[in-house]
């Protein structure tokens, strides 16, 4: 068993002179639920397409289950162990749910009919309904069903809860968590829904302009970052030279908001030592970490 289900090093991809991926590094530990975050156009979908083998990178290396995907003979074996949940409108436009299942089955030696049956009823998917007539939530659940039935070790999802109603969101998230808990399935998913990522991911990476600008364990990140709020009696005349750890400083009138990365004690002491300052410490949400890193650019 490899330590990492996915490993990417220096991944590059350009489209018509515009570079979508600019040396992306990624390490997804086996058994983790990994949230892949970034603005639109930051490179998330390109990365997933490369992992699917639908796009060739211009540089860098990617290994899945420890095997380089650049070696074509590896891809067949690798693809059998992965389940994809992406919004792909070209997929099976004339088939019914039942036909999709029957069509998919022979490609996967580990296929379990009993699981397909169980999840067909659990997800309440109408077997005779054509794919274009399914709601987005049902399409996502169908793809999950396929991944579960062929015992995928790695689940790659592209914005799995986008456009889903709250009930469907809960269902999808619960299935992801259940798979991770019961089978140790590694989950790699891109998302805009930061509160959802915060709930289920144990590791994250934030991609901006084609590079990973933040990555690591979510617990560590939230322990590392705190918000320091300093309010002065009057507007400061001279800017403060903050000690190390003041990552993003925003001043508005008599208030200064600091996103502190480590060294909180020293920063708080420095803040308190300033004349007329009152200091408060707040925990930081994933959304704040994301916005602060992506808004100002690095």
């Amino acid at each position: 068993m490899n330590d990492f289900a996915i490993e990417a090093r220096g991944l590059r991809k350009s489209f018509k002179g515009h570079s979508a991926l600019n040396g992306l590094d990624l390490r997804v530990p086996t058994g983790s639920i990994f949230g892949f975050l970034g603005r639109n156009g930051a490179g998330k979908t390109s990365t997933i397409k490369i992992l699917m083998g639908a796009l060739k990178s211009d540089g860098g290396e990617v290994s899945v289950f420890g095997e380089p995907i650049s070696v074509a003979s590896n891809m067949v074996g690798i693809r059998r162990r992965i389940g994809f949940v992406t919004e792909d409108k070209e997929l099976y436009p004339y088939m019914t749910v039942e036909q999709v299942i029957r069509f998919t089955r022979p490609f996967f030696p580990k296929w379990r009919d009993d699981l397909a049956k169980r999840y067909l009823s659990r997800f309440e998917l109408p077997p005779g309904r054509k794919i274009p007539d399914l709601s987005k939530g049902m399409r996502s659940k169908l793809m999950l069903l396929l991944a579960i039935s062929h015992r995928a070790e790695l689940l790659i999802l592209d914005e799995p809860t986008d456009g889903l109603d709250p009930l469907a969101v809960e269902d999808v998230l619960r299935e992801i968590v259940s798979l991770a808990a019961a089978e140790g399935t590694t989950v790699f998913f891109s998302s805009h829904q930061l509160t959802e990522v915060e709930r289920i991911a144990d590791r994250i990476a934030i991609i901006d302009r084609g590079r990973a600008i933040v990555s690591g364990s979510l617990d560590d990140l939230k322990a590392r970052y705190q918000r320091l709020h300093v309010v002065f009696q009057e507007v400061l005349r001279a800017p403060v030279q903050w000690v190390q750890g003041a990552e993003h400083v925003r001043q508005e009138g008599r208030s200064i908001s600091i996103l502190a990365s480590g060294n909180l004690q020293a920063l708080a002491e420095q803040a308190r030592s300033l004349p007329g300052a009152s200091v408060e410490v707040f925990p930081v949400t994933l959304k704040e970490i994301f916005l602060d890193h992506v808004r100002e650019g690095n």
Binding site: R174, V177, A181, A182, R199, D219
Partner: peptide
């Protein structure tokens, strides 16, 4: 079980394990 708590609360099983 860890699995049940993770599913009921829809949270990461590793967090429950921790």
């Amino acid at each position: 079980t860890i699995r049940k708590v993770a599913e009921d609360l829809v949270m990461n099983p590793n967090t429950v394990a921790r």
